[in-house]
Design a protein around this nucleic acid. Structure first.
Length: 110
DNA sequence: TTTTTGACGCTCT
DNA sequence: TAGAGCGCCAAAA
């Protein structure tokens, strides 16, 4: 159990639990952790953690399905490449069939 | 030690 | 239905 860990660690844990070919949103993680209003922290946590830990940040997008954090990758296109490699269709930095590939920790991990 | 910025989301008007 | 504002926490300078 990692409840004793920091909020940041909680985010990493959930992010790593995202199955291949699926994506989730910051709000979903935040809500799952019980801090929906702190959705910003989730995104910021990833930014700090993704560079430190091996977190599949490319599987985490904003609630619009937009690759907001692509710019934080080695290359902006890298994020899209990773998603497409997993079978996720990405167009114009947006995830196609977002709801189809959406992975909700509250449901999947419940 | 204090201030500013930052990968967002939800509610209200 | 659309647009604007507010709220949260942490790290870096």
């Amino acid at each position: 159990m990692a409840e004793n860990k920091d909020f940041f660690d909680q985010v990493y844990q959930v992010a790593r639990l995202i199955p291949k070919g699926r994506v989730t949103s910051y709000g979903a993680i935040a809500k799952y952790l019980g801090a929906a209003k702190s959705s910003r922290i989730v995104g910021y946590a990833m930014n700090s953690s993704f560079s430190l830990k091996n977190v599949p940040a490319h599987r985490v997008v904003n609630r619009n399905g937009l690759l907001t954090g692509k710019m934080h990758f080695e290359n902006p296109d890298k994020m899209q490449q990773l998603l497409e490699a997993e079978g996720i269709k990405v167009k114009d930095d947006k995830i196609q069939d977002f709801k189809s590939v959406f992975w909700d920790p509250m449901i999947e991990l419940l």
